[in-house]
């Protein structure tokens, strides 16, 4: 055989091989779907959330998020807030005066609104557009108050990274994937 033309037997052999491999791949994919659908039932996707009981207020939430400013914000659990006059999440230790002067506030961006309700109670609201998620107020409130300030991933902002880049540096190992239908931790008791 000295003819340079294609060798038909080898062409069909390759074709055969290819078909066999395709079949194997399809079978593999099918088996795989069977396996994983048997194992899951995961109709839902996951989102990232912070377990407030594990957060140690390290401050990475403000800096490590892929979004600038961070998708993590402080939230206020009003039910457990003491409405304290001297809010340890709002005021720096030993403030000059219990007023809204910036030098008295813990929050670096003045994102907390202090509103008089009735003597001696004040309501504290987070102005979310200003909050950078630095956890300074969370630390003050959780250490010395009721812990009604806590950090949460806000899902209207979060782009739901496949791997949250805060999660991998979180000092408290507080991030976890939670079902998207139940995407927040609602704090109902202190700590």
């Amino acid at each position: 055989m000295s003819h340079p033309a294609p060798n038909p037997s080898s062409v069909s052999r390759r074709q055969f091989l290819r078909e066999g491999m395709r079949l194997a791949a399809m079978t593999g994919a099918g088996a795989f779907v069977g396996l994983s659908s048997g194992r899951t039932g995961a109709r839902e996707h996951y989102v990232w959330q912070i377990d407030p009981t594990k957060c140690v207020y390290c401050g990475n939430c403000a800096t490590a998020c892929v979004l600038k400013p961070s998708a993590v914000k402080c939230v206020q659990a009003y039910e457990i807030c003491g409405y304290c006059d001297l809010c340890t999440g709002y005021f720096v230790p030993e403030p000059n005066a219990l007023n809204t002067g910036a030098e008295n506030q813990v929050c670096p961006t003045a994102a907390i609104e202090r509103k008089f309700i009735e003597d001696p109670y004040y309501e504290y609201n987070i102005i979310e557009s200003r909050c950078i998620g630095c956890a300074k107020c969370v630390e003050g409130c959780t250490r010395f108050g009721n812990g009604s300030f806590y950090l949460q991933v806000r899902h209207d902002r979060c782009v739901n990274c496949n791997e949250c880049s805060i999660a991998r540096v979180c000092a408290g190992d507080a991030f976890r994937r939670v079902p998207a239908s139940n995407p927040y931790f609602l704090k109902t008791s202190a700590h």
Partner: peptide, 16 residues
């Protein structure tokens, strides 16, 4: 006083 306590907002993630 008749104070109504605000609730915590929970903006949902992108829907299923």
């Amino acid at each position: 006083t008749d104070y109504t306590m605000p609730g915590i907002t929970t903006p949902p993630p992108r829907s299923l």
